[in-house]
Each structure stands twice: as structure tokens, then as C-alpha cells.
Simulated assay, not measured.
Amino acid sequence: MSCPICGKETSPDSRPFCSKRCADVDLARWLNGNYAVPSDDPEDIEAAIEAAAQAAASTDRLH
């Protein structure tokens, strides 16, 4: 198995990474928001809450 950061062979102590350094690089990427899950939700939280409420109301009307 190769390290997802640098491609070197992984170390049993740092798996799935080759070293603590690569593990720290990966953690920094998560904390900086470099890794993100795409979403169709509005970025504005108030708009997201309103959209969720409208979706729930639509579902309620169907049942």
C-alpha cells in the first residue's frame, strides 16, 4: 500500500501513511478545508434552514 500523500510505502506505525509527517500534512489539509464534500445546500445557513423547512413541508403535504 502506498502513502496517499507522497506515494512511498506505508509504515505500520503510521498506516495508511509512510510517516507522522505525511499524517500531519493530511490532518492540516482537513483542518484547512482542502478536503470537502460537495453539497447542493445553499451556503447561507439561513437559506439552508428555509430550504429544509420547505422540503419538509412539501413531504408533509404528500402524506
Rank of each mutant, 00 (worst) to 15 (best):
M1A: 14
M1C: 08
S2C: 01
S2D: 12
C3K: 03
P4R: 02
P4W: 01
P4D: 01
P4A: 02
I5W: 00
I5S: 05
C6N: 10
C6L: 09
C6R: 07
K8C: 07
K8V: 05
E9C: 03
T10L: 02
S11G: 06
S11E: 08
S11M: 02
P12D: 06
P12N: 01
P12V: 01
D13W: 03
D13N: 10
D13V: 02
R15T: 09
R15Q: 05
R15G: 02
R15L: 03
P16R: 03
P16A: 06
P16Y: 02
P16N: 06
F17N: 04
C18Q: 08
S19N: 09
S19G: 14
K20W: 05
R21H: 10
R21L: 09
C22T: 04
C22K: 01
C22N: 06
C22Y: 04
A23G: 13
A23K: 10
A23E: 08
D24W: 00
D24V: 01
V25F: 05
V25L: 11
D26Y: 10
D26G: 00
L27C: 04
L27K: 14
A28P: 00
A28H: 05
W30G: 01
L31K: 13
N32P: 02
N32Q: 14
N32T: 11
N32W: 03
N32R: 15
G33P: 12
G33Y: 14
N34T: 01
N34V: 02
N34G: 12
Y35G: 08
Y35E: 11
Y35D: 08
A36H: 12
A36N: 12
A36K: 15
A36G: 08
V37L: 14
P38E: 13
P38Y: 06
S39R: 04
S39W: 05
D41F: 09
D41K: 13
D41R: 13
D41Y: 05
P42R: 08
P42H: 10
P42I: 07
E43T: 06
E43V: 07
E43W: 00
D44M: 06
I45K: 10
I45A: 13
I45N: 04
E46G: 14
A47R: 12
A47L: 13
A47W: 03
A48K: 12
A48L: 10
A48E: 11
A48V: 03
I49R: 08
I49V: 11
I49Y: 03
I49A: 12
I49M: 11
E50Y: 04
E50K: 14
E50G: 02
E50L: 11
A53Q: 09
A53P: 00
A53V: 12
Q54W: 07
A55Y: 03
A55G: 03
A56Y: 01
A57M: 09
A57F: 03
A57L: 11
A57D: 13
A57G: 04
A57W: 02
S58I: 03
S58Y: 08
T59R: 12
D60E: 15
D60Y: 06
D60L: 13
D60T: 07
R61I: 02
R61D: 14
R61N: 14
R61H: 13
L62T: 07
L62E: 15
L62N: 09
H63R: 14
H63V: 11
